[in-house]
């Protein structure tokens, strides 16, 4: 029943958002692409020239580049492992009949709402600090030497902090999926004599597969962009030990004033993100046809 008239109106209603997003997508992206082929340093802005692939080669031959890619992958992989496994276990636990389920849910979900700088500073100062942190207190209680997290295991420390922030998200999504599992199916399996482990492997896990996929994909998008947590804890160091791609580009651009180099890095980040995005779009798109 969409007449010409309503169709025209619909177009008009969509125009502002479509135009805005189009501009938002095309203008900065093409500028990044353009800059990536230029010799352009903010300390010497009068002297801009065509650089060809120099910036890419420069970025590619920088030893920090491969370390930052590796660190990026370790952060994404480490956090995913902790949050998906931990989230599944916690979701299974909370899904049991327990007293005060509502409050337990609220406590578990809370870290997700803590802004990244606060989360990172709380962990840095009060939990992981080598002399005053809670973990140091615990170590001393057992007569052990406290760990200096950000000097000895900087990347692991960041992975733990980021995992703490995202564990609630994974738990909440998996719990939501778990609660939509048909209880009659569970009872039938139980009556057929399937034990707890078998029920989990053959019934629960397949049911959760879709939610897990969504968790992995969405978290990956955000985890590729981890920034504030690194900025306020290790500032990328020691050396490049906790520098991810985002942080390397930020350093190149705003601390090194190298517009060309940072833009080449940006293009590489886009390629990385797009690989993930393709899978995510496919998973979400399937749902749309439902």
């Amino acid at each position: 029943m969409a007449t010409q008239n309503t169709r025209g109106l619909a177009r008009l209603m969509m125009a502002p958002s479509v135009i805005l997003l189009l501009v938002w997508m095309i203008v900065p992206l093409s500028m990044t692409l353009w800059f990536s082929f230029q010799n352009y340093n903010l300390l010497n802005p009068a002297n801009v020239s065509f650089a060809g692939l120099f910036n890419y080669r420069f970025f590619y031959t920088d030893p920090a580049f491969f370390q930052s890619i590796w660190n990026t992958l370790l952060i994404v992989g480490g956090v995913l492992l902790i949050t998906v496994v931990g989230g599944t276990l916690i979701a299974l636990l909370i899904d049991q009949p327990i007293f005060g389920q509502g409050i337990v849910r609220i406590l578990v979900i809370s870290p997700f709402f803590v802004m990244p700088p606060v989360a990172a500073l709380v962990w840095k100062n009060m939990i992981m600090h080598p002399s005053y942190g809670v973990l140091a207190d615990i170590s001393r209680l057992f007569g052990l030497q406290p760990i200096d997290w950000f000097a000895q295991y900087p990347l692991l420390a960041i992975i733990i902090i980021v995992a703490w922030q995202w564990l609630p998200f994974a738990t909440l999504i998996l719990l939501t999926a778990l609660q939509s599992l048909d209880s009659e199916q569970k009872e039938a399996a139980e009556m057929d004599g399937a034990n707890v482990l078998n029920r989990f492997i053959y019934l629960t896990l397949p049911h959760l597969a879709r939610a897990m996929t969504v968790v992995v994909l969405i978290q990956t998008i955000f985890l590729l962009g981890v920034y504030a947590e690194i900025l306020v804890t290790t500032n990328g160091g020691p050396g490049y030990a906790s520098t991810n791609l985002v942080f390397l580009i930020y350093r190149t651009a705003l601390l090194g004033y190298d517009v060309g180099g940072a833009s080449a890095g940006g293009i590489i980040a886009i390629i990385l993100a797009n690989i993930v995005a393709i899978f995510l779009m496919r998973a979400v798109g399937k749902n749309l046809d439902r």
Partner: peptide, 13 residues
């Protein structure tokens, strides 16, 4: 898909 664009990629422009 516009949401997938990494922020840092357009930091400079």
């Amino acid at each position: 898909s516009t949401k997938m664009m990494p922020a840092v990629a357009v930091l400079v422009p």
